[in-house]
């Protein structure tokens, strides 16, 4: 059973165009526990700045868990324990003197289900700015965030309406707007389209490609085509049949992972032989 620690992308296959090797997050997970359960093991990879990195793999392989390590959201799960190191811009974010609240303010997150708060559209987008006590020019920045999330035209006349009155796809774009309003270093997206219809999904994908210009995006997806369409790099994770622990099988440029996978498991998965 291959338990390899994948190399950073440039080591696997020299990119055709020279890629600036510039990781914003370095993830080195040796062992990650929930209570006694070893959920993820031996998974290390670097998230490149200004790129889209996709995590693919079967259910239960720990994709979301790894994603949640990057903003310390796992801290609120009981029994969570990490052996390893996750660093943002070189600083270990699990260091004892690092405040997880501060970490999360630099990293935006979008979830599988839209999570609008019970307040107006405007207040949702302004949420992050307000908790940062960063209130100057609020109107302008809310508008900018909504425009970046391609939602402005649809909601500009109902900013004071409840966010719950929006459609599912609009709610998800609202959550993206909320996440990017504070201009985070990284945007984490945990299956952001799995609860959406194909048209909304397409809009979100277009949006991701647009946002890549200003943000680093990490996305977990079940949809292989989505990874192919949007991601620069793709990480494939799989589950150890015996221990049920997830681990990183292969990590590389999206093209390489889908067309010339180095690992047999990856090849079978991307060809749809198992899921």
């Amino acid at each position: 059973m291959p338990t390899l620690t994948a190399q950073p992308p440039h080591a696997i296959k020299p990119p055709k165009t020279p890629v600036r090797h510039d990781p914003i997050i370095e993830c080195e997970i040796r062992k990650l526990y929930y209570g006694d359960f070893l959920a993820v093991k031996n998974s290390s990879l670097n998230i490149e700045k200004g790129k889209i990195t996709a995590f693919i793999g079967p259910s239960g392989c720990g994709k979301s868990t790894v994603l949640r390590c990057m903003n310390r959201l796992n801290d609120i799960v009981r029994g969570f324990r990490l052996e390893g190191r996750v660093a943002m811009a070189g600083q270990d974010i699990y260091a004892a003197n690092v405040d997880p609240v501060s970490v999360r303010r630099h990293i935006g997150m979008v979830f599988q289900q839209p999570t609008p708060f019970v307040m107006s559209v405007y207040d949702n987008v302004a949420f992050g700015l307000r908790i940062n006590r960063d209130k100057h020019d609020l109107d302008h920045r809310v508008e900018q965030a909504l425009k970046s999330a391609a939602l402005w035209d649809e909601v500009k006349d109902k900013l004071k309406k409840s966010a719950l009155s929006l459609s599912g796809g609009q709610q998800q774009r609202l959550c993206i707007a909320r996440a990017i309003a504070t201009q985070p270093q990284v945007l984490l997206m945990d299956e952001p389209c799995s609860a959406l219809d194909p048209i909304s999904t397409r809009r979100i994908e277009e949006l991701m490609v647009e946002l890549r210009k200003s943000y680093t995006i990490v996305i977990v997806t079940h949809n292989l085509h989505q990874a192919m369409r949007v991601a620069d790099y793709t990480a494939f994770m799989y589950v150890d049949k015996e221990s049920r622990s997830g681990y990183l099988v292969e990590y590389g440029e999206t093209d390489q992972i889908f067309k010339h996978p180095a690992e047999e498991y990856t090849r079978q998965y991307v060809c749809g032989h198992f899921s």
Binding site: L73, V103, G108, T115, F117, V118, F127, I131, N132, C175
Partner: peptide, 27 residues
Amino acid sequence: VQARLIEAAVGMGCTSAQVVRRVLLPT
């Protein structure tokens, strides 16, 4: 109150007090 709303608030960088005041109580 759905756990994912709490998670979203924590993910935004809310302290516990902010989660309570801005999300838990209003919801």
